[in-house]
């Protein structure tokens, strides 16, 4: 058997799954976005109504803007935290055993349930929650803060809580591959700690930062459940727009929004991918 055919046979199951459950559904969404809907059913046709409605509604623009806002703020915070944590693990912790142990400590929550991790903020942030009672007993505030839960603050807090991991892992991976002699060389040439960080470590971490950025931005942009749950349904992003349409059985309109969301996400990624080749970094 030729190598080519063996390779195809080995790749076939993955291609089959991805074609059937990724490519076909996306094509289906694109098709349905031109369909029409009654209150209880959808019917095939070709019309641009869904898109016309989407682009003429001021809600669309507000919601997209809000989505970008969540994405940008979450990105900056996760980047700062992720970089600092990865830096600590890679350069300040000296024994490999500790590095691996502490790294795993950071990654374990990734394998537990996001829903539960969201729910677990309620006793913290609620009106009578831990944060408010602590602040009151310390005399910082007189009345409970209302904006801790069900607000932009809690939404972003949850995003940071859920997704910082996706920054830590790739940045840590990049840092561990940095040849330590480069840092020694920088020091021998009289670079200060800050200069080494700025001119040696940061440029070499760029691929890790990019991969983390791709993960965080796409996860936040495509999210609907975190925003719904952590804002108590008081805030909206594009994902919620889609899921609201779905719950009203307005699949064509949901599909049109989904297509626009997909294009937005792909444009963002295309911009980011110009800056790094993922396959080389693994």
């Amino acid at each position: 058997m030729s190598k080519q055919i063996t390779a195809w046979l080995q790749a076939a199951p993955m291609a089959f799954v991805l074609l059937g459950f990724l490519v076909a559904p996306i094509i289906m969404i694109a098709i349905v976005s031109f369909w029409g809907a009654t209150e209880y059913s959808i019917y095939p046709t070709f019309q641009l109504d869904n898109y016309e409605f989407l682009f003429s509604s001021p809600v669309t623009y507000t919601v997209f803007l809000n989505t970008f806002k969540y994405t940008a703020i979450t990105w900056i915070i996760t980047l700062l935290i992720g970089f600092s944590v990865a830096y600590f693990l890679a350069f300040e912790v000296r024994s490999l055993k500790w590095q691996i142990g502490l790294f795993l400590l950071c990654t374990i929550p990734f394998w537990t349930s996001n829903i539960i991790r969201m729910i677990s903020w309620i006793p913290f942030l609620g009106r009578n929650g831990l944060a408010n009672s602590a602040l009151i007993s310390m005399g910082v505030i007189d009345e409970p803060l209302e904006w801790l839960l069900f607000s932009d603050f809690s939404v972003i807090l949850a995003f940071v809580h859920l997704y910082t991991l996706f920054m830590v892992v790739p940045i840590f991976n990049s840092m561990m591959r940095i040849d330590r002699s480069l840092i020694e060389a920088a020091r021998d040439n009289g670079a200060s700690g800050w200069q080494t960080l700025r001119h040696v470590i940061m440029p070499l971490c760029k691929p890790g930062v990019m991969i983390g950025t791709i993960f965080v931005t796409t996860l936040v942009m495509g999210d609907f459940i975190t925003v719904r749950f952590m804002s108590g349904s008081q805030r909206a992003n594009v994902g919620r727009l889609i899921s609201n349409d779905i719950s009203l059985l307005q699949y064509p309109s949901a599909s049109a929004t989904a297509v626009v969301l997909l294009c937005t996400v792909l444009i963002v990624i295309a911009l980011l991918l110009r800056l790094v080749d993922i396959r080389k970094e693994l």
Binding site: L18, L22, L261
Partner: peptide, 27 residues
């Protein structure tokens, strides 16, 4: 091994990671 379509399959896999999950669900 090198095989025809490997680039396409790789990009499909990456796309699968970054495409919002609600789209997969809906589609």
């Amino acid at each position: 091994k090198r095989f025809k379509g490997s680039g396409l399959l790789f990009y499909m896999a990456i796309a699968s990671l970054v495409i919002p999950s609600i789209l997969v669900s809906l589609g």
